[in-house]
Write a protein that binds this DNA or RNA. Structure first.
Lengths: 206, 206
DNA sequence: CGTTTCGGTGTACGTCTGTACACCGAAACC
DNA sequence: GGTTTCGGTGTACAGACGTACACCGAAACG
């Protein structure tokens, strides 16, 4: 019955991460104090340092675990049938589902991406860049992309990732109102189709 | 020689706005204290209330003046020759120029859009929505857009505005390194062209 | 010229901040 | 079973925070 020591430590660590996600739901990491977090968890302020060097450090941990779930999402998209028409519908569905399931993580990333502590911003930027690169190599495997240059592939994947980030933001703003969300999803689908139509009619230039 | 009283007041007001823009360059409004701002300006904390009710209030003023300059930019784009090919080049040039000239304002908007105080976020979202609507009506006047539905126009303008926001963010991240900026600009041009190719080959559905 | 207006001052408060330091008690270890 | 390890405690302090209040001096006003 007695909890092992590492289990207990892991449990408070999780509590710190969760409390931080909850507390910065309507502000930002940079506006959060160590004392607020520890009070929410129910430990004394100085105990915080048994787990993290600083709030920035905790922020980096949150970035890591956010992108673990995000990568799971991307893998799911990638395992879809590679047919252009319904890859759009499935991708948007998967995005909507994951934003709901991991709402706090997505909110965290969207906020701290622009306004977080510098190391956190850099970590997020790096992860987004990795996602763009992965998408570019995926696109290269799809039929019809043979005439594209490597640079065009990067440009297209940057555009798509950007549109998906915007869509995620819009879903978060919709905040669960189903009619708004349906509208956002429909917009995202149309945007993706427009972009794909553009890409298929695209011819790289030297 | 003696400065009139309203002039003097306006001068400190400006100083407060400028100090705030500078101070939240690497954090956010929500992480800023009234005392930091007044110290930077060189007045006593309580004097702040002679100008604004709160930091949020000051933030709303910054949103307003940021979008004044942004609207100036959009007007400049709109006055361009409405030919698809070089409207892209000119739009991106104008965007790059304005991001440089109004660097602090763009940084402010990009940050507070996602992480600012709630009223500030809402004000920014509203202004962006206005910009999207204006772009949609502009697009409707361009040749070749006759077969598009109103909803397609909105979807396209949302996509373009989103891409431009991403581009502005990328320029700010490039932080003046000329080679990076050229790359960002080139990416933005290609993205816009891809989107326009997609749009021109687009046929609205019921 | 006397009076009012008002941007800015200075003091004072209770609260919250990060963190230093000494300490505890039980799980973990040999 | 004695010792070590270590997550969590409690006290303590110097500084920053928002803001209430009484006040000043000069421009603005009649």
């Amino acid at each position: 019955m007695t909890e092992t020591r590492v289990e207990r430590k892991e449990r408070t660590r999780r509590a710190l991460l969760d409390a931080t996600l909850t507390l910065c739901e309507d502000s930002s990491l940079v506006a959060l104090s160590l004392r607020q977090v520890t009070k929410e968890v129910g430990i004394v302020p100085t105990a915080f340092y048994r787990h993290f060097d600083s709030l920035d450090d905790l922020g980096l941990a949150l970035v890591d675990e956010s992108f673990v779930s995000l990568r799971a999402m991307l893998r799911e998209v990638r395992s879809s049938d590679p047919t252009f028409r319904d890859i759009v519908d499935r991708s948007v569905d998967i995005l909507v589902t994951h934003v709901h399931q991991q709402r706090q993580h997505f909110e965290f990333i969207v906020r701290e991406r622009a306004a977080g502590p510098l190391p956190v911003r850099e970590a997020i930027r790096h992860q987004v860049e990795l996602a763009e690169r992965e998408l570019a190599t995926d696109l290269a495997r799809m039929p019809g992309t043979e005439p594209w240059s490597a640079s065009d592939l990067r440009v297209l994947s940057t555009l798509i990732v950007g549109a998906m980030v915007s869509t995620a933001e819009a879903i978060l703003v919709a905040a669960g109102r189903l009619d708004l969300e349906r509208e956002v999803a429909e917009t995202a689908r149309t945007q993706l189709r427009m972009v794909l139509v553009g890409a298929l009619n695209w011819t790289s230039r030297a």
